[in-house]
Design a protein around this nucleic acid. Structure first.
Lengths: 110, 110
DNA sequence: CGAATGGTCAACCGAAAGGTTGAATATGCC
DNA sequence: GGCATATTCAACCTTTCGGTTGACCATTCG
């Protein structure tokens, strides 16, 4: 796992981990509560959370004996940027794509 | 690999495969030419291409004895849509995009 | 035809992923 | 202090991944 994108995409490749991210979209959660809907051991969920953390997709903060998990969308944004270069623009050459982006950013700004 | 998203993200998790996608962004390529910049066997690249195909990220068409590889951005679009659900990522950022592409291209033949 | 080129297949290998279980470590509560 | 709760660690197992090699088809060319 040399590059950050490797870790991000690898983390997203597992359906359990994606489900966890969706859950965290609504609210921060304790590890035990994250594990609750899944039919696997708490230790397994703990591992998944570790992977999500190392990928930068979530952060964890311990308050008392409870460890709270929080979504961190920054890493997702990086991966999203990479993907949008393929998903939105069909087989364009680099120059045309850059020109398009410059226009896009210069105009809308949003 | 139950869901299509699993296959898509798993395919994207490997730097060699992402480098291949970047290469195909510019033009369709024969398998041998795809393999050329990499320091691994043709068979290994063939496997990577198979994974990309099963994930729907590329298509392959044989003409004569040459098999041409073509980028298929639809699968990436699906994954991108999934990621958009995580919030209002700012639209594509040019500098970030260039940095990523640069990094990916730079490491391609490594 | 036979030889070179393009690509895959099959068997194998080491390492990593994803899960289990049971013990260990903190922390909070009575 | 002692017990319950929250979470991780360690060891283990099985399957998958990413790579190799050598043999094997398919196609073109001389």
């Amino acid at each position: 796992m040399t590059e950050p994108l490797d870790a991000t995409f690898a983390a997203l490749a597992d359906p359990t981990r994606r489900a966890i991210l969706v859950m965290l979209l609504e609210d921060d959660m304790a590890v035990t509560d994250v594990a609750d809907p899944f039919e696997m051991s708490l230790a397994a969920i703990s591992k998944h959370l570790g992977i999500l953390m190392r990928a930068g997709l979530i952060s964890q903060e311990k308050r008392g004996r409870v460890k709270w998990c929080k979504l961190e969308p920054d890493a997702l944004r990086d991966a999203s940027i990479w993907m949008q270069s393929f998903g939105q623009f069909e087989a364009v050459n680099l120059e045309a794509f850059e020109a398009f982006l410059e226009a896009e950013l210069g105009g809308a700004g949003d």
